[in-house]
Design a protein around this nucleic acid. Sequence first.
DNA 1: AGATTGATCCAT
DNA 2: TGGATCAATCTG
Length: 200
Amino acid sequence: MTPKHSKPLPREFYERPTLKVAKELLGKVLVRKTTHSTMFSKIVDVEAYVGPQDKACHASKGRTKRTEIMFGQAGFTYVYLIYGMYHLLNIVTEREGYPAAILIRGLEPEEKEDPPTGQARIDGPGRVGRFLELDRTHNGLDTTQGTTIWVEDHGLAVSRKQIQALPRIGVDYAREWAKKLWRFTLPIPPSLKTRRITIK
DNA sequence: AGATTGATCCAT
DNA sequence: TGGATCAATCTG
């Protein structure tokens, strides 16, 4: 099922309307390569931040040192520190000059054990950053090069019916923009649901 | 509900 | 140059 060789999604994939790209990222495989290992995780939860008018988008405040990357070429990472603790991973979309990005909120890591143990879902953008061992050195990386962080298509079909559209989290300050259904998720599979009991 | 935590941005 | 803000998470 998983192809032996898969290439990073090309820049053209990201150079399109952000809402479309966001939905199409669901079911794709995020690859994170460190010196020790290469991790593969299915993308299951994303949020779109779309353009200068979107008050929830950091770039609505204009072009600054921090938001500069979002104004640049699509396919680059936008990683930033929030609350002094969490590194959130985004991928830049749309044409150069139009600031937009997609926040990765949830992952399902590939099973590594041979009898699969039932891997937990990584739920929340802060946990995603921690799981992927991200820090600010991962800001502004080109995901089309297949070096550190990239996305592959392993051929998993995702139908529109599976995609839930929800309001974005934690952006109440954006007033009416917070009501946009620009968060897209895949349902938690039953195999994971049954394993969501957390033991202390 | 409250604490945590530090980079960023802007104006008191 | 200070201080408010913040695409969150953990604990109680």
